[in-house]
Amino acid sequence: MAHTETFDVPWEKDYGYAQAVKHGDTIYLSGQVSHDGPDLVAPAPLDEAGRPADSGNTGEQMRQAYANAATLLARFGASLADVVEEVVYVLDIDAAMAVAGPVRKAAYGREDPPVASTIVTTPRLAFPELLVEIRVVARV
């Protein structure tokens, strides 16, 4: 039987999903973004068209997304040390690659995280102010 977890934020009900699902020994996390409760953390400033005006907050958003992933994993008695795969979605690959190494290594607590990782660009995320979304799979 699957066990689920949420952050009880409005967009979970609006879209209809769980933040995390544990099935057997595997924990699947939905894409984690930069938020603390219903508030976005380090939102990108938007231009007149409603698109991010710059990518300067990429690292801070990435740190918060990993922190949210760690919070969810802890609810299952797991941690980022149990992550086996991640997909990092970014709006600006150059900005992301400039900060991803140090941010990821700090999040995982080691210089050589044993995590299969893919980083891809996307034209937009769930909210216009978002620059990063991180999906992980953990095994316990």
Rank of each mutant, 00 (worst) to 15 (best):
V41N: 02
T58V: 01
I27F: 11
E60A: 15
Q32I: 03
L40M: 07
N57Q: 13
Y28I: 13
G59H: 02
D36K: 14
E60R: 15
E48K: 14
P45M: 02
P52G: 03
S55G: 06
P52S: 06
S30T: 14
A42P: 08
V41A: 05
D25Y: 04
D54P: 11
Q61V: 11
R63H: 09
Y28T: 14
G59L: 01
G59R: 01
P38R: 07
N57G: 13
D36F: 12
A53D: 13
A53I: 07
D39R: 15
I27Q: 03
Q64N: 10
A49R: 14
D47W: 00
Q32P: 12
P45E: 08
V33Q: 13
A49I: 11
S34K: 06
A65V: 06
L40E: 11
T26D: 09
L29V: 05
G37H: 01
L40K: 04
R63T: 14
A42G: 12
D36H: 13
N57L: 12
D39Y: 14
P43W: 00
Q32S: 04
V33K: 12
T58S: 02
P52V: 01
D47V: 05
A53C: 07
A44T: 04
P45G: 11
D47T: 05
P38C: 08
Q64S: 04
G50V: 00
S30F: 10
G56Y: 03
G59P: 01
E60V: 10
A44Q: 04
H35V: 05
D25V: 07
D25R: 12
D39H: 13
G50P: 00
D47E: 01
L29F: 06
S30C: 10
L40C: 04
A53H: 08
Q64K: 11
Q64M: 08
G59S: 01
M62N: 07
S30I: 11
R51Q: 14
D39A: 15
Q32H: 03
D54S: 15
D39E: 13
L40Y: 07
G50L: 04
L40D: 06
A44I: 07
Q32W: 05
L46W: 01
N57H: 15
T58I: 02
M62C: 07
D36Y: 09
G31H: 09
Q64Y: 03
A65E: 00
L46T: 05
E48C: 11
I27P: 02
I27G: 09
